[in-house]
Design a protein around this nucleic acid. Structure first.
Length: 578
RNA sequence: GGUGGGGUAGCUCAGCUGGUUAGAGCGCAGGACUCAUAAUCCUGAGGUCGGGAGUUCAAGUCUCCCCCUCACUACCA
């Protein structure tokens, strides 16, 4: 047993997340956490809402709310969406917590003491009518390169050229449209990540074999281009106040806060502190053994899950913070990065409300359906297209036909022909040897895929195991033996029911609701639902593990099929399809 | 523009350090079975592995050029 710390990239506060966010960080982290718990590891799965930054302020403004109240409300909404999808966070915290505030200020102080932070002056566009500084992309104007009139300050959508907002001709605020904008000098703190380049490169290279190529290639690309120092403060009200080396409000930094990307990863630690504080029995109040390598965290395996857009921050900026502190904080061990789930040719977008969002998804289909489909089609190797047709195929074929129907056919048969009692007797023959051998090969493969965080392969192996159950029944055919050789029918049914239990056990990380229904129907006690399968003989024994005379009932139909009419309705409602 | 992914059966994707007739699921065709949510099981058809050149006894796999697509490009997060 080992200690495994799991974090998924913090979902931003400005709205309930879409299926792309779910599939790229929160859901795989949850599936991994559940699988590792079943294997007996001591797992701590931490997540939180990422609440600071300009978009939060603007979203609150648009909602006519105070930003803190807005965040309260959206945090609740996201917590509910997560609970609806059965995300098994040990703690779902907030980056706005006092603990994260204190840690952020602490890190800034030690980084400054270590000479890794310095003040610099930069130019930033200020909007007089909005009363705020504008992030680059909130400034629009005429592109100095191609003359396009609605170029954004960071990049022109017409010619693709990267821009600096102060170069825009006739700039105006994208928020209000006002042309009353001016360029002002503004003072900010810069994190000198360039000084950590060599250390970072060494560290990234040491993970070339255990991180996905997507993660190392992005990190090395930035390093190859030469790390630039990054400003870690912003002209904003909403966020963590900037302090000086003594921890007092920093002179000249009124109206400035730390950049959201500086404090967001620190919130992994802050949320762990909050977890320890709020869950005294589970934690013993101890967060340090998870994060301080001098307090046991060097024994912890730390796994981060994120979309590819987050990789640079998790492989460069945050590690600079950790390493630069000179303090014994835990660095990530394994980093799992995902591509995007795409939506009918484009991207899902929270700000443009394009795609399917978690609250809507749960409204049209049970969480198990989504969990299965999104994991079976996880965007691991490349972007993965979401289509309603594929969703329907996953649910109907994999869940309803292969798994659901298997459970249904053998439990019903047991109830009707053997009075709902697990039958005794019979002698194992060829079919029984076949399924045992099949499991001896597939169960270890499945476990290996989970340990490697190869989710598509784990899902495909899971499905193959379910399908093997159907093949076993074809081979054993208890219904043909029933009239002539009751013993032979009995062993087929008994093995079949044992397979039902096993299929429920291996399904738990992915489709926890259906798995619980299956295991409850067979009265499998909690302690027998784990993944302590043992060696090859232990695995072979799984096919005949249930106690004699176990009462068996047929659970209600586990998965109803997605009909063609459903697809038309959803395509109509969400704009996809056709 | 730069950099990095990806381009393999109708669709979604596996194919590690190059090595026998290129794989899976879905879909499709045929057959079997009838316990079951017209479910399941078996068999089969279907690909000049984006294009071109090269290295090699041997290339989907390595090198170079080109095409398409997606992402990142540091103040959205």
């Amino acid at each position: 047993m080992s200690k495994i710390l799991i974090t998924s990239a913090l979902p931003y506060i400005n709205g309930v997340k879409h299926l792309g966010n779910l599939a790229g960080s929160m859901l795989p982290a949850d599936v991994y956490a559940r699988a590792m718990r079943l294997m007996g590891h001591d797992v701590l799965y931490i997540c939180a809402t990422d609440e600071h930054g300009t978009p939060a302020e603007l979203a609150a403004q648009a909602a006519g709310m105070d930003v803190a109240a807005y965040c309260d409300q959206m945090h609740e909404a996201q917590a509910k969406a997560g609970a609806d999808f059965k995300l098994s966070y040990d703690y779902f915290g907030r980056s706005s917590s006092d603990s994260t505030k204190a840690l952020t200020q602490h890190f800034a102080q030690v980084l400054e003491q270590n000479g890794l932070i310095e003040e610099r002056i930069s130019q930033q566009v200020y909007s007089n009518s909005d009363g705020r500084y504008l992030p680059d992309r909130y400034v629009e104007g005429t592109c100095p390169n191609c003359g396009f009139e609605k170029a954004r300050g960071d990049q022109c959508d017409n010619c693709g050229k990267l821009l600096d907002p102060i170069d825009l001709i006739d700039p105006y605020s994208a928020l209000s449209g006002s042309q009353d904008v001016e360029v002002r000098d503004t003072r900010h703190l810069y994190l000198k990540q360039s000084e950590k380049s060599d250390d970072l490169r060494k560290w990234v290279n040491s993970h070339k074999n255990d991180w996905p190529p997507l993660a190392t290639s992005i990190a090395l690309k930035w390093l190859d281009e030469g790390l630039r120092d990054r400003s870690i403060t912003r002209d904003l009200d909403w966020g963590i106040p900037v302090v000086d080396a003594d921890g007092n409000p920093r002179e000249g930094f009124d109206g400035k806060v730390y950049y959201v990307w500086f404090d967001a990863p620190i919130a992994y630690i802050g949320a762990t502190q909050d977890w320890a504080h709020d869950n005294k029995e589970a934690s013993g109040g101890d967060w340090e053994s998870w994060w301080r390598t001098d307090k046991g965290a060097d024994e912890v395996q730390y796994v981060q899950f994120m979309g590819k857009d987050n990789v640079a921050f998790h492989t460069l900026s945050f590690p600079t913070t950790i390493m630069g502190s000179g303090e014994p904080w835990k660095l990530v061990d394994n980093l799992k990065a995902f591509n995007w789930v795409t939506w009918y040719g484009g991207k899902f977008s929270t700000s443009e409300k394009r795609g399917v969002f978690m609250d809507q998804a749960i409204d049209i289909a049970p969480s198990d359906y989504w969990r299965w489909h999104l994991m079976a089609n996880a965007p691991e190797g490349s972007d993965a297209a979401f289509t309603w047709e594929e969703f329907q195929a996953s649910v109907n074929s994999d869940l309803a036909n292969v798994l659901g129907n298997f459970v249904n056919r053998i439990t019903k048969y047991c109830v009707s022909k053997f009075d709902g009692t697990l039958p005794d007797g019979g002698k194992a023959g060829e079919a029984e040897a076949w399924i045992a051998a099949e499991l001896q090969q597939r169960i270890p493969a499945l476990i290996e895929f989970y340990q490697q965080r190869e989710f598509r392969k784990a899902m495909s192996e899971t499905r193959a195991i379910w399908a093997a159950g159907n093949e076993y029944l074809t081979q054993a055919a208890p219904w043909t033996h029933y009239k002539t050789d009751r013993e032979k029918a009995a062993i087929g049914v008994r093995y079949g029911i044992n397979l039902v239990a096993l299929f429920g056990i291996i399904a738990q990380p992915i489709i926890p609701d259906a798995a619980a229904k299956i295991l409850d129907a067979l009265n499998i006690p909690e302690e027998n639902r784990t993944w302590n399968f043992g060696d090859a003989s232990g695995i072979a024994a799984l096919v005949d593990a249930l106690p004699a005379c176990l009462p068996v009932s047929a659970p209600d139909v586990l998965f109803t099929k997605v009909e063609d009419e459903d697809l038309s309705i959803w395509a109509e409602r969400f704009g996809g399809g056709s």
